[in-house]
C-alpha cells in the first residue's frame, strides 16, 4: 500500500499569506503538494465553521494563516481573528478535538520560504498522526463504507 498522503486545507488571507505562497511558487521553492489553498479577503473573514466543514469533508489537517499583527490590509482583521482563534481553540480543547491538526500561522508576502517550510512541517506532522477519522467514526452509518460496498457490487 502506498504511503498515506494527507489532505491539508489552507485558509489564507489574500494580502499576505497568499502572496507569500505565490512568492514560494515564483521562486521555484519545492514544498509538499498536499496543501489545498483557499484564498480569503482577510483572516477576519475565516469563520470557524469553515474549519469544521473542512474536517467534515475529509481534510486531515488545516492551516490558517494571515498577515502578521499590525500588518493587516484592513488594519485590524487579524487582531479580531486572533481573539476568535483563542476562544475557538479553547472550546475544541475542552471537547477533546485534536487541536494539533489545526495550525495557525502568520506568513507575510515576503516569507515564501517560511510558507514552504510551514507546509512541509505540517505535512510531516499530519503524516505521522495518520488520517483524521474522529468525525467519520461518530455517525453509526458510515457513508463511505456504504459507497464502497455499492461500488464493488
Amino acid at each position: 500500500m502506498s504511503e498515506f498522503e494527507p489532505k491539508i486545507v489552507a485558509f489564507v488571507c489574500n494580502w499576505c499569506t497568499y502572496a507569500g505562497a505565490d512568492l514560494a511558487g515564483t521562486s521555484r521553492t519545492q514544498y509538499a503538494s498536499n496543501v489545498r489553498i483557499v484564498r480569503f479577503p482577510c483572516t477576519g473573514r475565516i469563520d470557524f465553521m469553515l474549519l469544521m466543514k473542512a474536517f467534515e469533508n475529509g481534510a486531515d489537517g488545516v492551516i490558517v494563516s494571515g498577515c502578521h499583527p499590525n500588518d493587516c490590509h484592513y488594519t485590524s482583521g487579524n487582531f479580531h481573528a486572533r481573539r476568535r482563534w483563542i476562544v475557538f481553540r479553547s472550546i475544541l480543547d475542552l471537547i477533546g478535538f485534536d487541536t494539533d491538526r489545526i495550525t495557525f500561522s502568520w506568513v507575510s508576502a515576503a516569507e515564501g520560504k517560511k510558507w514552504a517550510n510551514l507546509v512541509d512541517e505540517v505535512t510531516d506532522k499530519i503524516k505521522a498522526k495518520g488520517p483524521f477519522t474522529d468525525l467519520d467514526k461518530l455517525d453509526g452509518v458510515q457513508l463511505k463504507e456504504l459507497y464502497d460496498e455499492a461500488i464493488t457490487k
Binding site: P69, N70, S76, F79, H80, R82, R83, R84, W85, I86, V87, R89, T103, F104, S105, W106, L118
Partner: peptide, 30 residues
C-alpha cells in the same frame, strides 16, 4: 483570564470578540 472581559457587566463597551488589544497573548500561532 485572557482578556479580562466580563459579559453583562457594563452598559457601555464592546464585547470580547468585537474588540481586541494589539498585545493579546497566545502561544500557538507560529
Amino acid at each position: 483570564k485572557e482578556f479580562g472581559t466580563k459579559s453583562g457587566f457594563a452598559l457601555k463597551g464592546d464585547y470580547a470578540l468585537n474588540s481586541f488589544k494589539p498585545d493579546d497573548k497566545e502561544g500557538f500561532i507560529k
